[in-house]
Amino acid sequence: MAFRNLTRSLFQLTKRTNINQRLYSSIQYSPQYRKFEITQRYFSIRKFSSIQTNDNAYRDLDTFLQKEIQLEKTAQKHPTQLPNIQDFQVETKGPEVTLTRQVGDDKITVKFNVTNTVNTSESEQDLNLNATEQEQQSNNAPTQLKSRPTFTVDINRGNQILSFLCSYLPNEDPDTRNQHGGIENEQKPDGEQGHFLEDFQIDEFAIHEGEWNDKVYSSDCSVIDGDLYDKLLNLLEEHGIGEEFANQLSDFSTAYEHRQYIGLLEKLQKFVKK
């Protein structure tokens, strides 16, 4: 996990500083250079034996994966059982997760996908650090990867569905948490440094029959009345979709995404061994 954090940080730093760019020929196309371009097209820049390259690349990748998979398994916080999401039944299919519960006459369904949902608490200032400073920080206090997926909530009443599109509030921007009257996160009772309670916002909502698609009108919650937004949050809270749910969903998603990532590495290892 630590290697995965460092690799992603270095990739972001490299991307921001623009030091890893492809170098193209500065010669522009014109008739007088046509002959040169045709000749250059058949000129090999790197001369390697394809058989030797493939063998070495697969062997090197396999050796790396053996160590990496073991490190990732050692770093798992929930290696045998995934975290619990209270009062919800959980179904998984690949990266997709579906949560369901019954509240009176209402059926609640929450759906999300863990693909590309892992982020860190790094700020823009952290990304501007040079490689040496980032390496020192990673050795002293490694960044914790967390999965904070966008999710949908469906409240089914009869033949109609009230749907919400929700997303987690940015950890590095506490002002965003107060945009619609929200409360800033507090530290957990266990006193973990830098670990704050999660919270979410409603991005869109709609009422529809059948599937929620492009033919259904939805409203952007950033432009609706503030009191209406608060009442929609209260409605979700009464159906079990509140701050505690947000924390449990993030913990579950983090553990499940990590399990999916390890599974992907194991599939890659089987592929290179063929």
Results as ranks from 00 to 15, higher is better:
178 N>F: 07
157 R>F: 09
155 I>A: 06
156 N>Y: 11
179 Q>S: 13
174 P>K: 11
172 E>F: 14
175 D>P: 04
155 I>S: 12
167 S>E: 02
139 N>V: 10
172 E>R: 10
172 E>N: 13
143 T>P: 00
186 E>Y: 11
138 S>N: 03
145 L>Q: 13
142 P>A: 04
178 N>H: 06
160 Q>C: 01
169 L>R: 02
140 N>E: 15
158 G>A: 04
144 Q>N: 07
135 E>N: 04
180 H>Q: 07
163 S>P: 14
144 Q>M: 09
171 N>T: 14
171 N>V: 11
172 E>W: 12
149 P>R: 03
181 G>F: 04
155 I>Q: 01
169 L>N: 06
181 G>P: 10
146 K>P: 00
154 D>E: 12
162 L>D: 06
133 E>C: 03
160 Q>A: 13
147 S>D: 13
139 N>C: 08
170 P>C: 04
144 Q>R: 15
172 E>V: 10
166 C>G: 07
169 L>D: 00
151 F>S: 00
163 S>M: 09
142 P>K: 12
186 E>K: 12
178 N>P: 00
136 Q>G: 05
153 V>L: 12
152 T>H: 08
144 Q>W: 06
163 S>T: 14
169 L>C: 04
164 F>K: 01
187 Q>T: 13
175 D>S: 06
163 S>W: 06
188 K>Q: 15
185 N>H: 05
171 N>I: 05
159 N>A: 12
142 P>D: 14
158 G>T: 02
171 N>A: 06
168 Y>A: 00
164 F>Y: 15
157 R>T: 04
168 Y>G: 01
173 D>P: 10
135 E>D: 07
137 Q>K: 14
186 E>M: 09
185 N>W: 10
170 P>T: 08
148 R>P: 01
182 G>V: 07
139 N>R: 12
147 S>V: 10
135 E>M: 05
140 N>S: 10
159 N>T: 15
178 N>R: 06
144 Q>G: 04
179 Q>V: 01
177 R>M: 02
155 I>W: 01
164 F>H: 03
